[in-house]
Design a protein around this nucleic acid. Sequence first.
RNA 1: GCCGGGAUGGCGGAAUCGGUAGACGCAGCGGACUCAAAAUCCGCCGCCGCAAGGUGUGUGGGUUCGAGUCCCACUCCCGGCACCA
Length: 874
Amino acid sequence: MQEKYVPAEVEQQAQSHWEQTDAFRAVEDPTRPKYYCLSMFPYPSGKLHMGHVRNYTIGDVLSRHHRMRGYNVLQPMGWDAFGLPAENAAMANAVPPARWTWDNIAYMKKQLRSLGFAIDWSRELATCRPDYYKWNQWLFLRMLERGIAYRKTQVVNWDPVDQTVLANEQVIDGRGWRTGAPVEKREIPGYYLGITRYAEELLADLDQLPGWPERVRTMQANWIGKSYGVRFAFPYELDGKRELMWVFTTRADTIMGVTFCAVAAEHPLATRAARDNPELAAFIDECRHGSVMEADLATMEKKGMPTGIFVEHPLTGEKVEVWVGNYVLMGYGEGAVMAVPAHDERDFHFAQKYGLPIRQVIAVDGETFSLDAWQEWYADKQRGACVNSGRYDGLAYEAAVDAIGADLRARDLGDRQVQWRLRDWGVSRQRYWGCPIPLIHCERCGTVPVPDDQLPVVLPEDCVPDGTGNPLNRREDFLACTCPKCGAPARRETDTMDTFVDSSWYYARYCAPDNAAAMVDARTDYWMPVDQYIGGIEHAILHLLYSRFWSKVMRDLGLVSYGEPFSRLLTQGMVLNHIFSRRTERGGIQYFAPDEVEPNRDEAGQILGATARADGATVDYQGVGTMSKSKRNGVDPQALIEQYGADTARFFMMFASPPEQTLEWSDSGVDGSFRFMKRLWSFGWRYAREIRPLLAGAAPQVPVGQRLDAPAAALRREIHTHLRQANYDFQRLQFNTVASAAMKMLNALERAQPGADGPTHARVCAEGLSILLRLLSPVTPHACHVLWQELGFGANILTAPWPQPLEEALVQDEIELVLQINGKLRGSLRVAAAASREQIEQAALASEPASRHLEGRPAKKVVVVPGRLVNIVA
RNA sequence: GCCGGGAUGGCGGAAUCGGUAGACGCAGCGGACUCAAAAUCCGCCGCCGCAAGGUGUGUGGGUUCGAGUCCCACUCCCGGCACCA
């Protein structure tokens, strides 16, 4: 051991020890409690970013902590290796996505290793490897056999210039990111997975996930969106035929207030009406432009046009005009809605805009209905009762819906129905860098599944996308095949799967990564479900919901025994950084890394804009946002690791804020963490020279019943108090205060002057240091490993028992209480720890501040909070 | 727009069940050591005030002996919105 703290040497020593002893290989062992600790696997974007460091440090702290508490821990790692950024990189650099991806994986793996994570690398997987995605294909075919996977049309963003499908991310203000051309909506066929079949179970099982944050369960429940309503039809006669226009509503109680209906631009009624109405045809064409994103649809201007077609109100027979509305979606519900402008905000604004009638049918006592403004109470179905509704007048929401539902059913025009917001999962992507969908198109036999013994359908790895569609469409060697049914020449499907498929079951594959014959095996039963899953809050809905769905499908196929894959979930807050961008000449968007620009700030230091260092021209400031490859605002932790070492980087990430909170990145503050590491090291150095010799080889625990003088007892009490706090914080996953507790322990040990005070103090000090090193070892494992060994605490800190606070060390004779008068702090009170309420009251009333403030008057009331404070109400 | 979350000194954050607001750090200021600097160590450090004291947890109300914490109304910021991952 040397006096100076040199992180590179310390970390090298610890890491080679772990490697030589294969310390983190996880072996199934039914005699020990298992702990499967999983961090969300990274997309290999190029370099680790701070979000990764945060995520994987949290996972590593938990893994190492549980290991010391006696669990058989599995902490694997892999790569979410398919996806769009690889295609973008390919376009920019003319490198095949496969090559780019594997280079990134190699670099990022080196970075992960340098951070010293306790990962079982023997289980590493990458979703772009055929031995992994073979099982995506295999399970897809099983779903197809059972009708869980099926084909229907989907609406996509279409770039008319590049002649390609765009991801939502590639649409900026309704235009293609590369071409700047207005995006069109286009309907194309695709495959869907029937997640809605599991809606009821996905919703109900949220109650069985107490280890998940409440907010995530709420978000999922709202996303699944179970609602009770009525599906009913408006009859109409057109071209001599009697037809029905179906709608769904959760507000059937307002049915007598319907003054018009609205249908999607793609609705058959709209198509029919446009046949001899060029103006309407033009409007429908206009609706084809713009984005398919819900956020855009919700915020865009609501427009409409009458079709001239009238339908009949199902209860009154009254004529109701049908409009085409750009806000009605064909793919959601029936593609048609009833409009009750008096009691629906969107309908209200639409009616005002186009001068349509508004008919009040709900009244609330004491509230005045007005046509001038939308008011909140209109929408509250728990208040009010029907008016202007004939035989339904006076009925409240539930009763009105019941009566109206019954009347519709009697006429065969509708019934009560449960509706879900959740839609089936569209998994087809018109992209190259993904898992091929294992289907063959035969002229004679139609679409034919690839037989199991021909799996996997291997993706050729040498394509270079150029932005003009899927290059697989031009790969004859991939396309050409024979029909498995009839043997005739046939064509392969070129659509690939959504990358959410890859990430929906990787956690199960880690348990049996080398099984070439099956997707999962008995080892999966040992490790699953994941005991602790850790990942960004941005995955709170989609990834987690898809994984839950996939698990239930695998369970129903008899592949696994669990129905929920993740027992406990920690959603870490995002690491944010400033975002700078600029419009390109073609109307696209270009992002700048924060170190490529010089920010302009106002007097308060707020960033207003910036200039690019490269060309000195202005750049727009977009505020802070999540660190991402596409926005180019990630911070590479490499510099941090090289300058300070992995332990400091890890410690700082944990210390900076609690895991669930968002973290706005800033370099300052790392110095403090490095200073702490240096102080820890030099205290270890001093211990080795001054303190340890006083112990004469004795164990570093204070013997039970050992009498200590007051300063030694105080030091020991402080160490054990911080330990008790830290253990509590570990249990509630608040690691920033664990780091604080470690700092407080070191402060206490340094203050105590242990060497100068003889063997008793040395003993307390040795015990304190042994607690500190064990407490800290999950966070800064390298330095703790070396110090533990060099200072003679034991051979290997990984197998040391987790420290527990001792009652004997915590007892106090006297405690200090806060003294308040009328709720304001006026002093303090020292009392015996065992003092009764009466004794405390008397001591408080007799105190100097009490007599000063009471001036002889009797106190109205004295509030005593045991162990905390006394409040005298004057 | 809808769903979920957040806001505490110059900065990151602490405060466990409604009980001392600002723990632990960063930055800053003052001092020691040094020829000097770096490193290290000691002290000070919410705001107003000479002080006594007052005031203070995004804003405005409320409940309570006592509110960062509970209730009502709002503002701003972040995440998600189904093809970024």
